[in-house]
Amino acid sequence: MLPALVVFGVFVVAPMVDGAWISLFAWDGVTVGHWVGLSNYREALVDPLVREAFGHSLVLVGFYAVLPITIGLFLTALMTHARVRGGAAVRTIIFLPQVLAAVVVGVAWKWLYDPSGPINSLLGAVGLSSLEHSWLGDFSTALPAVGVIGTWVTTGLCLVLFVAGVQRIPLSRYEAARVDGAGPVREFFAVTLPGLRNELAVAMSLSVITALRAFDIIFVTTKGGPGNATTVPSLLIYQRAFITGEVGSAAAIGAIMGAIILLLSVVITRVVEERR
């Protein structure tokens, strides 16, 4: 127990405490910082850019968590209802983006979204030239475009979790539901969904956390642009800590983000446990 506590203390608790301590200073990362108390937090909470960044994170939760979970549940229901051949292959293919490095994913999708890239040329080829535009350069489409990348990456994880969960549901429940005359939809809501409660909680926690701390894909594809259209808290932390020399402010945003992630994780776990 003690070695684990030491490792946890040195590598988890100490950096967190250090980060929280730094957030109480106005520090450029080089010269001696001076104590400002909670003013970094006050400034972060009223800063419109920080609020906008958290708003973007909220939108990304839709793409990184809600959509993948919905698609994952839909595909799981399909695979469960009609035990199809090749289900494992489909699962593997959909899981494939999960094993790729986020930087590789970002570079690949940046090319796909390029004004002269494959997506626009496919739209042109099917007669939808009017829809062609710079997906990552347009203020209105940049954030959803980045979100779609998140959906593409996270869906595989949700699907694998749900399929693993479904295999633990006794077949007798499905047989009983079918004997009672349940169709595919009723069967899903009466048997599959309640049986996947734990997996749903895990998928929701992981994907919400992924959405809130999204950095690498956004950094590679848009760097927060155009303007601040895709700026998220992680990117703000990076910019303030390493570019503009506002390390204290970056640490304060990090602490706020950490608290929000912790709070959401607790809420998700509580909700699932209460419904058990």
Partner: peptide
Amino acid sequence: FAVLALAPL
């Protein structure tokens, strides 16, 4: 869905 997942790669 498999095609949608695989196409970018």
